[in-house]
Write a protein that binds this DNA or RNA. Sequence first.
DNA 1: CGTCACCTTGAGGGCCATCAATACTCGTGG
DNA 2: CCACGAGTATTGATGGCCCTCAAGGTGACG
Lengths: 249, 249
Amino acid sequence: MKAQDSCQGLHVPCGDCPIRYRAVCASCEAPELDRLDATKYYRRYEAGQVVALAGERVDFVASVVQGVAGLSQTMEDGRTQMVGLLLPSDFLGRPGRATSAYTVTALSDLTLCCFRRMPFEELLRSTPRIATRLLDMTLDDLDAAREWLLLLGRKSAREKIASFIAFLARREAGLHQTRPEGRVRIDLPLTRETMADYLGLTLETVSRQISALKRDGVITLEGNRRVTVPDFHRLVLESGDDSDGGLPA
Amino acid sequence: MKAQDSCQGLHVPCGDCPIRYRAVCASCEAPELDRLDATKYYRRYEAGQVVALAGERVDFVASVVQGVAGLSQTMEDGRTQMVGLLLPSDFLGRPGRATSAYTVTALSDLTLCCFRRMPFEELLRSTPRIATRLLDMTLDDLDAAREWLLLLGRKSAREKIASFIAFLARREAGLHQTRPEGRVRIDLPLTRETMADYLGLTLETVSRQISALKRDGVITLEGNRRVTVPDFHRLVLESGDDSDGGLPA
DNA sequence: CGTCACCTTGAGGGCCATCAATACTCGTGG
DNA sequence: CCACGAGTATTGATGGCCCTCAAGGTGACG
């Protein structure tokens, strides 16, 4: 069930890669990029497939090229919490450790750009530029996880939903080097259940709060997945975050 | 209120440092250690003092030598969540960023071993060994934060308290390269209120659950801070975590 | 012995989980 | 064309966990 015909799929040259300037390879220059290009390979997963189980050995690390993956932890009685959402350009895997600490699931159809562990670790050692980039990305992940601690520990269900939609909008806008403003459209890449796993709620509560935000005019829906936010600022107010979140530049 | 007569205090040679082999400098060898020794300086804070406010400029990074510090985030209406607990050997600060993302507070009397930012970043660039060590510590922090996501998102108040005590016991045991087993004694380094901030609870709930664990014989108390766990395994069961958490070695 | 910080315990209510029933969507096959 | 079923989403009813408000209790220290 888990393995898949992975190695098929075109080999995209790094120069043409959609995540070239945001992934772990962002700071690479030509010679390093050539080394990466020579050893990388693509893997594809369908929505719902498991990429790795918690505790399982994984022999590669990877960048998400396309699609969405989730990292989750499950307790013995079945309660689960998603602890990370991997979007395009995010890095998957922990250098220096051969087993996955989390269960990794493809939440949509997913394309990974993989590197075998050993060569990649060797590259890390020999190429400070990549190591620095990875450190910086990891620090960003840590900040994101800590933002989520505030969300899980202190926010109401309504604020959680609003925060999540705002998070997606910001991330989306980040691709275009802009900030969300005014009217915004987003595709939810997750089911209600997966959102619940991520937000520390039940799927019923997610559904109810989305309905409530719709009733209150904070969002509108087309189908179940497509969300329109008429006024992004209003959404941020609902999220409980500081409205002026950071540098005005 | 915030500054303090900091630069007083003995200059402990790195060779005699209690956290020599667990801090960011763990992997350093003699020449690097000499460079660190030359530029480091100690700062002391009393319990309750603020080390840095969120958004504030901080010109140093540091290792915790002694005591406990907390990283916390606060919402506009006053709700706060502690997002990190810094114990001896933990690293404070983010290389590459001059402002603190969180409010840092001394939860007990605290001694930091500080390095001015710029020289430290230079050292990071020129010494891959230190950069690798910092990456590894950051990845550990990320795993710890994600463990806390599960705690905040899915655990009951009772499980949260049990998890927290178990966490302290493991951390304590780690200093002696052992694992907690059987009878264990711990000093809570936090007030009920600070524990509440860390666990996403109110101080009343923390108090009630500690009382309940005492009633049920999972722990006993001497004073408010000293906890004895008669059977560590029992505590782990109460925490909701897998009882066999990892490699048996 | 009074003050202050910290902690405990009680009473009541609100938010969200749980259980349950009903729609909606979409692909398959009669 | 409609029936069918599986996966997904919405909505309602009820209850429990934990927050809130409130009133002591404990211990350190001047």
